[in-house]
């Protein structure tokens, strides 16, 4: 991290699956570089012997029995589909 943080906005938007306009690219680049400059102050925290915390509490694997349980009926699962065909979600063609 450094005070002159630079963000490759086109690459990052591509990774995020977001198509940005030229105006958005300019605006976000300036805003995000300012935010990155601010978060750069984390460099001042001494974390040499500190474990990373992904979560507030100690976490253990939570298991449940491998048994059938009631779930969504198909009609409920499909009820908000942008496009459907019968019992399936429709998407643009994936294979040639």
């Amino acid at each position: 991290m450094s005070a002159t943080a630079h963000i490759d906005i086109k690459k990052t938007a591509d990774l995020a699956r977001l198509r940005l306009t030229a105006e958005e690219e300019t605006a976000y680049t300036a805003q995000l570089e300012r935010i990155l400059e601010y978060v750069g102050q984390l460099d001042e925290a001494d974390t040499a012997s500190v474990e990373a915390a992904a979560h507030p509490h100690e976490l253990f694997d939570v298991m449940r029995s491998d048994a059938a349980r009631p779930g969504f009926v198909m009609e409920a699962a499909l009820s908000n589909a942008p496009r459907r065909s019968g019992d399936q979600f429709m998407v643009p063609k994936v294979v040639e």
Binding site: M1, V39, L42, A45, T47, V50, E51, A52, A53
Partner: peptide, 11 residues
């Protein structure tokens, strides 16, 4: 960034 922030979270 991310790993560093998680460590600061511990602190």
């Amino acid at each position: 960034y991310y790993r560093k922030a998680q460590k600061v979270r511990t602190l």
